[in-house]
C-alpha cells in the first residue's frame, strides 16, 4: 500500500530500569516500522513508557536489548537526523525567537572556532539563514516576534517557534513529546491545525506522543497504542507492548468536523477499551495490528502452545 522508504525501524526493543534492587521492564519487545511521510501518533495509559520509547528513538537513551535504525543507520545518540519538540524546556531562554530558529543552521555550518576564524563567511551565511528562518516564521505568523525572548511569548507561540526550530533542520523524523499537553483547549486546537498544515506542506515524517485520545485520532494517519494492560499465555507479563497498530481511516489530514463525527466516537470507544482500560486486558491473540507495516515477534511461551495464530497477520513466533 505504501512504497515510501523506511525511516524508522524499531526491532525487538526491550527497555528495563533499575527499581528497588531489580530490573523493571518497561518496554517488552517493541517492533515498529515507519515509512517516510507518515504521521504516527503514539498513545498509551500513563506509565506505559510512551516517552521512554520516544527517548530511545531520539537516542537520549539506549535500549536494554534490540536495536533502532533511522533510515538504515543505527541510533547511537541524539543527532541532527531527528528533531525534537518537548512540552517543557522547548526553547533556549537566552536566545531570541530568530536566534533559536537559526541556531541549528549555524551550528551545522560552523564549529565553535570557525565561527571566529571565518567571520566574513559567517556573516554571509547569517544573512541567508536569517532569510530562511524569517520566511518560515512569517508563514507561522510569528514574523513580528523575531526579536522577542521566549519568556515574552505565550505557550502556544513558544511551541510554534520550537516546531520551526526543529523543522528548519529538515530532520528525517520529527519527534514530539506531548507538545501541546500544557496548552489551554483553544490554543491546543489551533496548534493541532497548525501542525497538520506544516505536515501537509512538507510531508515530513512525524512521531507524535500524546495521552489525549481525540488528539491522537485527529492528528495521525496511523495510530500506535502502547499498553501494559494485556494478557499472554504467560502468567507474569511485565512491560508494555504495542497492542494497536492501525491506519486511522478518514484520510489525512482530517477536517475539523472529524472531531465530532460518529466515526471518531466509535473508534474512540474501541481504542479506549482495548488499550487504556486496565480491567479489559485483551489477550495477545486479539491485538489490532492491522496496519500494513505492523509486525510483532512473539515467543512461544507468550503465544501459547497451540501455535494457532493465523488470525494475526505478520505475527510470528520466535
Amino acid at each position: 500500500m505504501n512504497d515510501q522508504p523506511l525511516i524508522l525501524h524499531v526491532d525487538n526493543v526491550y527497555k528495563a530500569y533499575p527499581d528497588q534492587g531489580r530490573m523493571r521492564m518497561i518496554l517488552n519487545d517493541v517492533d515498529l516500522k515507519v515509512r517516510q511521510g507518515e504521521f504516527v501518533t503514539l498513545l498509551g495509559p500513563s506509565g506505559c513508557g510512551k516517552s521512554t520509547l520516544l527517548r530511545l528513538i531520539l537516542g537520549s537513551e539506549l535500549p536494554t536489548k534490540g536495536h533502532i535504525e533511522i533510515a538504515g543507520k543505527p541510533v547511537t545518540g541524539p543527532d541532527r537526523d531527528r528533531g525534537i519538540v518537548y512540552q517543557k524546556y522547548s526553547l533556549f531562554p537566552h536566545m531570541t525567537v530568530l536566534e533559536n530558529v537559526v541556531f541549528g543552521l549555524e551550528a551545522e555550518e560552523f564549529g565553535l572556532v570557525s565561527r571566529y576564524v571565518r567571520r566574513a563567511k559567517l556573516a554571509q551565511h547569517r544573512r541567508h539563514n536569517k532569510e530562511k528562518a524569517q520566511e518560515m516564521l512569517d508563514r507561522m505568523s510569528l514574523g513580528s516576534d523575531l526579536n522577542k525572548y521566549p519568556h515574552q511569548l505565550s505557550g502556544g507561540m513558544r511551541q510554534r517557534v520550537a516546531i520551526a526550530q526543529a523543522m528548519i533542520m529538515e530532520p528525517k523524523i520529527l519527534l514530539m513529546d506531548e507538545p501541546f499537553g500544557a496548552l489551554d483547549d483553544n490554543t491546543r486546537t489551533d496548534m493541532q491545525l497548525f501542525i497538520l498544515e506544516q505536515w501537509e506542506r512538507t510531508k515530513m515524517t512525524v512521531f507524535f506522543v500524546t495521552h489525549d485520545l481525540v488528539e491522537a485520532l485527529f492528528l495521525g494517519s496511523r495510530l500506535i497504542v502502547l499498553s501494559q494492560f494485556y494478557k499472554t499465555a504467560k502468567e507474569d507479563n511485565e512491560g508494555s507492548k504495542i497492542v494497536t497498530d492501525r491506519a486511522i481511516p478518514g484520510g489525512h489530514p482530517k477536517p475539523t468536523s472529524f472531531k465530532n463525527s460518529a466515526e471518531l466516537a466509535a473508534m474512540l470507544e474501541d481504542v479506549r477499551r482495548r488499550g487504556l482500560d486496565p480491567d479489559f486486558a485483551q489477550h495477545i491473540h486479539e491485538f489490532d495490528l492491522s496496519h500494513a507495516d505492523a509486525y510483532q515477534t512473539v515467543s512461544a511461551a507468550e503465544w501459547g502452545s497451540d501455535q494457532d495464530h493465523d488470525s494475526q497477520k505478520d505475527q510470528r513466533t520466535t
Binding site: S60, G77, R80, F92, A107, E108, G111, L112
Partner: peptide
C-alpha cells in the same frame, strides 16, 4: 540546566563544545 536542552542541541547539529559555550554557559 535541563538535559532536554543538551539533547535538543545535539539534534540541532551542535557539538559538545558548542553546547557548553553557546547553550549552557550563557544561561
Amino acid at each position: 540546566i535541563p538535559k532536554q536542552q543538551t539533547i535538543k542541541g545535539f539534534t540541532l547539529a551542535a557539538s559538545d563544545f558548542e553546547i557548553t559555550y553557546r547553550i549552557v554557559l550563557p544561561q
